[in-house]
Computed example of a mutant assay.
Amino acid sequence: MAIKITDECINCGACEPECPNNAIYEGGVEWAIADGTSVKGAFVLMDGSTTDANTRHEPLAVDTYYITANKCTECQGFHEEPQCAAVCPVDCCVPDEMYRETVDELLAKKDKMHL
């Protein structure tokens, strides 16, 4: 399952550079699939809709850092554990119950983003 950042976030920014998928954004910043990935052209999001990889999407949070589940792979294929959770000083990077994915699904998502 994807990771989410809870309201306990202190906006330290330690998590953002650790994400191998560039799935973590500062509050208020728009996100795109192409950011930090090799994706070009059409990309199918988790809700089944299709977007262009370069399309900017509304921020998921305004006041704190956030993780877009469409890009989060829990660091599968890169690290033994989610790096955001490993470096978070207040333990606010936790599993997101809304996005349950198997390890195989997370690895397939990683492979789609990093050709």
Rank of each mutant, 00 (worst) to 15 (best):
G36K: 00
C84L: 02
A2D: 13
G28D: 03
D52S: 11
I67A: 03
I67L: 12
E16R: 15
I5A: 03
P59A: 06
K110N: 14
A53Y: 00
P59Y: 01
I24E: 04
Y65R: 08
Y65N: 03
V62A: 15
H79S: 08
C75G: 11
G13Q: 04
T6F: 00
V62Q: 15
C15V: 03
I33V: 07
T50A: 11
Y25P: 06
C12A: 04
E30M: 15
S49L: 04
P20S: 00
E18T: 11
I5P: 08
D47S: 04
M1P: 15
N11W: 02
E26K: 15
M113T: 12
Q76W: 11
I24D: 05
A85D: 03
V103M: 13
D96K: 05
C84T: 00
C9Q: 00
D91V: 10
F43T: 01
P89G: 07
S49G: 03
H79F: 09
T55H: 07
E30R: 01
I24T: 05
L115E: 14
A2R: 08
G27L: 01
Y65A: 09
Q83M: 13
I33Y: 08
D111I: 12
G28T: 13
C84G: 02
N22L: 12
C84D: 03
H114E: 10
I33K: 09
A42I: 13
T50D: 12
P17V: 09
C75N: 05
C12F: 02
P82F: 03
M98E: 15
W31L: 06
F78S: 09
T102D: 06
P89A: 04
V62G: 13
H79Q: 12
E74Y: 14
G13A: 10
Y99V: 15
A14E: 15
C88N: 15
D7E: 13
P82M: 05
S49V: 10
V103P: 10
D52E: 14
C75R: 02
F43Y: 02
H79T: 10
